[in-house]
Amino acid sequence: MKLKESDMPQITDDVIARVIELARLDPLAPGMAMHKHHLSRILEHFKVLSKVTVEGIDPTIHINPTPISLRDDKVLNWLSQEEALANTRVRTDEFFRAPSIHDEGD
């Protein structure tokens, strides 16, 4: 089924704000206003997708028709705790350290 270009969703400031929130990006980061402008312009071009007939076509799930191969489910000697923690900037003893997910009143 073809869509009309006018059927393609419009990009509003509210939509952009929701996207920034979902993507865990910083709305106050430099260049965010420019990204909004570029995103609108890019999506305007991508309305070309509405012109293509895709009726009866399944979306691609995997590009190769061969089944996914899984390795044996067995325990391997993998990273030590120290190796896993080696790249973090903030740690407490043998743990990653991150802000609390609880409010102070919890």
Binding site: L3, M8, I11, V19, L49, I57, P59, T60, I63
Partner: peptide
């Protein structure tokens, strides 16, 4: 994030994957 978000998934992501199949 936009293409995968609710309300836009079918018009963009799903449609793009159908174009890929085609």
């Amino acid at each position: 994030t936009f293409a995968l978000s609710s309300g836009y998934y079918d018009a963009y992501y799903q449609r793009a994957q159908k174009v890929r199949s085609r």
